[in-house]
Amino acid sequence: MSTTRRGLSERLVEEIEGLLPRYPTRRAALLPALHLVQEELGRVPHEAVVGLAELLGLKPAEVEDTLTFYGFFRQDEPLGRVRVWVCRSLSCSCRGGEELLEYLGQKLGIRPGQTTPDGRVTLEVAECLGACDYAPAMLADGTLHKNLTKGKIDAFVESIRQDASSGGLPGA
């Protein structure tokens, strides 16, 4: 998709403008707009920050102020196609969640916060996923993986490999 001079694609600009009627100020659309940008680009690069500022009547520094507060957004390095969150809070941790995080990291060859060199997977630690009834839990894009075990992690990693070799988009 071609990008406009704002650093945002036409589709993004359209989608963000579609959010504006929900709020009495343009700035209030910033958080949902950041989500849209990251969904499309895998990160929120500087050009998009400038574009969002222009679109929402803000200074780039104001966009950056909000952007950097929330742990969810990436600026420089794009996210992998699948973003995996493994919960490390109490209910998961006390049922082995942190060992499973370690195990998944070893299988993928990366540490939390990193993306596999082929750009397939970004591994993250999560503070309480709110899935304590299914601890230990993991969220991979839109899917909650419940009562995690090493076996389930093996199967998950295998499914990503297969999707990658068939060219599909895992987790989509």
Partner: peptide, 29 residues
């Protein structure tokens, strides 16, 4: 009445009611 969903971005502090308000306004919470 209109209802809109406003999604957070991974910050615990947004559960504090005035942090939540700041976050809807597009600011740090």
């Amino acid at each position: 009445l209109d209802i809109h969903i406003h999604r957070g971005a991974g910050a615990y502090i947004c559960g504090e009611e005035t942090g939540l308000i700041e976050s809807i306004e597009g600011k740090r919470a």
